[in-house]
Amino acid sequence: MTQDLTQKWLAEIQSLTQQMRQFQQERDEAWESSQKWRQLYNTEAEQRRADAKMHQEAVASIKAEVQKFSGVNGETGTDITTAIQQEIFQFNSLEELQAQLLEVIEERDCLLQALKLEQENHAQTRKSLTTALGDAIDSLARLRKNDKNAVCE
């Protein structure tokens, strides 16, 4: 009977030892998995920080360019510069700032095209007026010449 009891206890100890090894193996696997996930998280977090820093630098660069270009306006440009700066600070992301910049560039291009058309029209008008003035002077000169010839005869 003692031998049966001993065999039973030995079997129970072996079973518990086997379970303990299995639990230790599962714990080690879970630890390795958590280490892999931690590494992936850290890599992703580092990438997000790098992206955020890059976007902040891009926004700062755009703000510096706006300040540089707005400085050209002189004294009256100070109010405009302040207004532009306040508008820039309202943007929450680089994408919003880029979208606004694209709108401004499109408006600038449209205004440049209108200015070019106006300049071409102005040049054409000046040419037409110069031609008309030349014709008027020629006609006046002919009339005077004809009047002199008429008086002399």
Rank of each mutant, 00 (worst) to 15 (best):
E46C: 04
Q24W: 02
Q98Y: 04
V66F: 00
E57R: 12
H122E: 07
D135T: 04
E107T: 06
K127R: 10
F23R: 15
S139G: 08
A150F: 14
N73I: 06
F23T: 15
L133Q: 12
E26Y: 01
S61E: 05
A150Y: 13
Q39Y: 07
K148A: 10
Q19V: 11
Y41C: 08
K63R: 12
T76Q: 08
A60R: 10
D51Q: 10
A52D: 04
S93R: 05
V72C: 05
T131A: 09
Q25L: 04
A150D: 08
Q3C: 08
L143Q: 13
D4T: 14
S128I: 04
Q56H: 08
T6W: 14
A45W: 04
E12D: 10
R21C: 10
V104C: 01
N146F: 08
N149E: 00
A83H: 03
D79A: 13
N149A: 15
K145M: 03
F23L: 15
W37M: 14
W9D: 04
L143E: 08
E46K: 13
K68M: 14
A30S: 11
A114G: 01
D109F: 05
Q86P: 04
E120T: 11
T81I: 00
E12A: 07
D4P: 08
D28L: 11
Q119H: 01
T82R: 15
Q85G: 11
R48L: 05
H122N: 09
I13M: 07
D51A: 11
Q24H: 12
V66D: 01
I137T: 11
T82Y: 12
E65Q: 13
E120P: 06
T81F: 05
A123N: 02
D109E: 09
A50M: 03
S93Q: 03
A30E: 06
E26S: 08
D135L: 02
M20E: 10
N149H: 07
Y41K: 14
H55S: 09
C152N: 09
A123D: 02
F91M: 06
D28N: 15
L101K: 07
T76V: 12
Q86I: 05
L133N: 05
Q98E: 02
T2N: 06
L94V: 02
L97E: 01
T76K: 15
E107N: 08
